[in-house]
Each structure stands twice: as structure tokens, then as C-alpha cells.
Design a binder for these strands. Structure first.
Length: 298
DNA sequence: CACGCGTGGAA
DNA sequence: TTTCCAAGCGT
């Protein structure tokens, strides 16, 4: 505890997972040498709930257009929303834009390397702060995302799935599993996450290819099925979320302010449509103009 | 702490 | 087809 030496059980996982990562890691642009903290930060925002394959094109054009935080900070927020395209959860675009402005104002335009300073940025929570500090700056942090929670739930706890929502216990477990050495800890963070993304997957884990299958508590227990409360699957069809998506798509694709009539055409239920539009305005994703016209925020 | 927040691909 | 799920955050 005092020396953060970790548990022997977890320590036995380090070498095989690190070796597996060295041989099997995906080549991703934000992992290239010299990618920089801004590149890591942009990728982390985009990867919050959006799969890698769908992020790649948006990431490339984003960094080409705004290679530094100051470049994005100088833009209208609506341009960030438009460039976000259909990655989903467009409030992330607004937060990334606000974070870029905060970086310019508070950190001289450079992504801070301090965990607390990162955590204070808009859109940066526990996971993202640790991810940037670890991936971009090589620091020792427990980087706890859904992949890591699943890997540790299986390998150490011996259950098929982690708890439905992240818990303090997850954080503690990940902190305990962290190698003591800083640079090793940073490699472990990305490697254990990659293992969860490629091998120790949610639906059909590829245990035959897993470098720690002989030590995995879940496998050793006979791979018992998930036994917890049912996970609430979210329906999407007909929701306010879908309505917001339709409205925003109209505005994204327009080069000039659009009329209320154009927005009305994209969703039949007037009550739901108005509620969704009000919500978008309240979130700062849509700017109402005079004479019933709307645009992305400037 | 539970919920709202987009979108699309894979099983 | 339906269902599940994908590097979370803010309230």
C-alpha cells in the first residue's frame, strides 16, 4: 500500500500482457512517435463512446485543420460541431473546443501534463485525465476505461463482466494492479486496454489467443456466465436523442442559417421536436437567430 | 448514483 | 431482425 508495489497476482500479468502488446498493438495515428499531447487529447475525446474505426477519418481531418489547441480555440464552436460530423454525442465537440480555449488561456496553449490541471478542463473526467497523463506524458496513473474494467474483472476478480457502472472498487483494483515503475505503468495502461479491445472483448472473448489465459481467474473458474443484474439496453428509435440527431444533422449540412420550416420537416412529432430543439439550444449546440432561423453556434 | 446524451457496425 | 456495444462526462 505505502510503496504501491501492487499485488503478486496482478504482477504476474504484467510481462505477458506487455509482450503481447509489443507484438500485437494496432498501429494508430495518436500512438505514433511525436504525435503529441494534443493528438492524444483529441483522440481521447473522440473515443469516448465511439469505436476506433469510426474515429479515424474524423481524427485525421481534425488534426490537419487544427494542429494545435490555439487553432481550434480561434474557431467558432459551431465549426467544431460541424467537423465532429456523425461521431455522436456532439456535446463532446463543444467541450473539446472549450478545453482548447482553456488550454490557451490557462496553459499558454500547451496541453498541461499535470493530472489535476487536465481534470479541470471541460470534458475531461477521471478516465481522460489519466489517459492523457499516461499516454502522452508517460506518467503512472490507473487508466480505467470499460476495457480495463473488463480485463481486471475477469483476470483478477473472476467474473464475466465488471459492474454496470464504474465504482471506487474498480479504481482501487486498477491502482493495485499498476506496476510500480513509472514507464512500465504507462506501458501497462495502454497494453491492458488494448487487450480488452482486441482479445478480452465484451461479447465473445478470444481466450484462445489471450496471453494470460492460464492465469485468468475467470477462465480458471470455468468461465462462468454473467450473473449480475440485467444491463438496460437503450432503445434509440423514436427517442429525443434521435430527434436531436436529426435536427443537428440539418444544421451541420447547411452552409447558411436554416428556417424553422426546414427543421420542422425532419421530425413529425411537434412536441418532441420542440423539446429537442430547446435542449440543443440550452446545450449551446444550436444558436437561435431572429425571424425563426437557426445555425450552429458562432 | 442514475440518467441523458448519437451513431453505426457486428453478432 | 433485433440486440448489444463502443477508450465517458456532467448533472
Amino acid at each position: 500500500m505505502l510503496d504501491h508495489s501492487g499485488s503478486p497476482l496482478a504482477a504476474a500479468l504484467h510481462d505477458p500482457v506487455l509482450r503481447w502488446y509489443d507484438a500485437n498493438a494496432r498501429v494508430l495515428p495518436w500512438r505514433e512517435a511525436g504525435a503529441g499531447a494534443w493528438a492524444v487529447m483529441v483522440s481521447e475525446f473522440m473515443l469516448q463512446q465511439t469505436p476506433v474505426n469510426r474515429v479515424l477519418p474524423a481524427y485525421r481531418s481534425w488534426l490537419e485543420r487544427w494542429p494545435k489547441p490555439v487553432d481550434l480555440a480561434a474557431e467558432a464552436p459551431g465549426e467544431a460541431v460541424r467537423a465532429w460530423d456523425r461521431l455522436g454525442y456532439p456535446r463532446r465537440a463543444l467541450r473539446l473546443h472549450a478545453a482548447a480555449q482553456a488550454i490557451v488561456e490557462r496553459h499558454g496553449g500547451e496541453v498541461p501534463d499535470d493530472h489535476a490541471a487536465l481534470l479541470a478542463l471541460p470534458g475531461v473526467g477521471t478516465y481522460t485525465a489519466a489517459a492523457i497523463a499516461s499516454f502522452a506524458f508517460g506518467q503512472r496513473h490507473a487508466v480505467v476505461d470499460t476495457n480495463v474494467r473488463r480485463v481486471l474483472a475477469r483476470a483478477l476478480t473472476g467474473v464475466a463482466q465488471p459492474s454496470i457502472s464504474p465504482t471506487a472498487a474498480d479504481q482501487r483494483l486498477a491502482a493495485t494492479a499498476l506496476p510500480a515503475d513509472e514507464s512500465t505503468a504507462a506501458r501497462w495502461a495502454v497494453a491492458s486496454m488494448e487487450l480488452g479491445a482486441l482479445i478480452c472483448t465484451a461479447r465473445t472473448p478470444r481466450c484462445a489467443d489471450c496471453p494470460i489465459r492460464t492465469q485468468c481467474a475467470w477462465v480458471l473458474a470455468g468461465s462462468p456466465p454473467y450473473d449480475g443484474p440485467p444491463r438496460r439496453g437503450q432503445t434509440y428509435e423514436g427517442t429525443d436523442r434521435q430527434t436531436r440527431g436529426r435536427l443537428l444533422a440539418v444544421l451541420r449540412d447547411a452552409s447558411a442559417p436554416v428556417s424553422k420550416a426546414q427543421l420542422d420537416a425532419c421530425w413529425p412529432d411537434a412536441v418532441q421536436r420542440e423539446r429537442a430543439l430547446d435542449g440543443l439550444v440550452a446545450d449551446g449546440l444550436v444558436e437561435p437567430l431572429s425571424r425563426g432561423r437557426y445555425r450552429l453556434p458562432e
